[in-house]
Simulated scan of single mutants.
Amino acid sequence: MHPARARPGFRGFPPPPGGSSMDSLRRVATVTTVATLLLITVGALVRASGAGLGCPDWPHCYGRWVPPLSVEDLPPSADRATFNLAKTWTEYLNRLAGVLVGGLVLWTTWRAWSVRKAARRVFPLALGIALLTGFQGWIGGLVVKYELDPRWVTVHLFLALLMLALLIELRETTRLGDIPQSRREAGMPPLLARALKVLLWFSVIQILLGALVRGGLEVVVQENPDLPRDRWIPTLGSVELIHRLLAIALALAVLGFSWRLARSRETSATDRRLAWTAAFLIAAQYGSGVGLHRWALPPTLQVIHITLASWLFAVLFLLHRRVR
């Protein structure tokens, strides 16, 4: 028999056991990870369009599994004055996207069960993601119940980031299997590896702080419906200012880290590409933040802003996982 072909990142060692089943799980985990990122974007679209309460109940929508198509279809107890067909269906499609991601997570868990003997950590990790997905759905119901309370929205976003991190962890586990850390390819100088951990947590804090800022805007609009759009941000006070100052610090830190990592001789070509990707994402994300402030929070830029933030977190976590 011919020896197993080595894969990149193993310094000539054979791939982890499991063969095509492990490859299949890795592909499914990749699809689920990308779908989760897209779901975060859809959630940002719902928030930016003001459709968060387009369906005022959960898990139903106006007491139905399929939303009404007109005012005439509303139940007698519904407030007809607040019904908006576009917002209702925007929120409903967001829920359908969540169901799709839930299905992908279950598929991932089933595939993980099939290779549990090849990599011991795979199935418990996949099962944890499945349980977290169910819990996330319950939290989504609380977000609706408490009418987009910023605290519950922030918890909802944090769990989405945690789910994203665990999916990346699962994908990388299928790549490395149970190979000891000492036998893996070195990827980053220790000082940069420690700096990366700090950046990772920094990005999480900044994303959650941004969610609180966005939630504060919802409160401002509800309490002052006639307030001009260009006056929304100044009413937020110190929270928005802290978020803006931390954005500058995070942008400089990620750009500096990416430059140092890309110049390091200990870094693999893949990690250098990820470093430049992180640099591009933070530059674009900071630029979108400037645009939000300058042009009075256009909805399109709101969606772009949170999308870039989630992709930046994913890239930083992937870098962290590759060299951990």
Rank of each mutant, 00 (worst) to 15 (best):
L93R: 08
W152H: 12
L96C: 11
Q206W: 01
N84W: 00
R214H: 01
D178V: 09
W201D: 07
F158D: 05
A4P: 02
A35K: 14
F10P: 01
R7P: 00
H320W: 15
P16F: 01
L176T: 14
I205G: 10
A275M: 05
L316N: 12
A253C: 00
V143T: 15
R121V: 02
A283K: 01
V155W: 08
G102P: 06
F10D: 07
E72H: 04
P298M: 06
T267L: 12
L157N: 00
Q181R: 15
G43C: 11
R111P: 06
A251K: 09
V105N: 03
A118R: 05
E240N: 05
G210M: 04
T300E: 12
V153H: 00
V239S: 10
P150T: 11
S77D: 13
G103F: 12
G177S: 11
R27D: 00
F10Y: 07
G18E: 02
H60C: 08
I233A: 10
L199T: 08
P15T: 02
W152E: 09
R231A: 02
T33P: 09
L308T: 14
V220Y: 03
L142R: 13
Y92H: 14
L301Q: 11
S114T: 12
L208K: 09
A195F: 07
F123V: 00
L191R: 11
M163L: 15
I304P: 07
A279H: 07
R80Q: 12
V115I: 11
A249F: 03
A251G: 13
M188L: 12
L142T: 13
R121F: 01
F83K: 03
P75G: 05
E240G: 02
L162N: 06
P150D: 03
W65F: 15
P56G: 11
G140M: 04
V213T: 12
W201H: 13
E91R: 00
A253N: 00
S238P: 13
P68F: 03
V144N: 01
R80F: 02
T88D: 01
W201T: 13
N84C: 01
A193K: 09
P228I: 07
V198I: 08
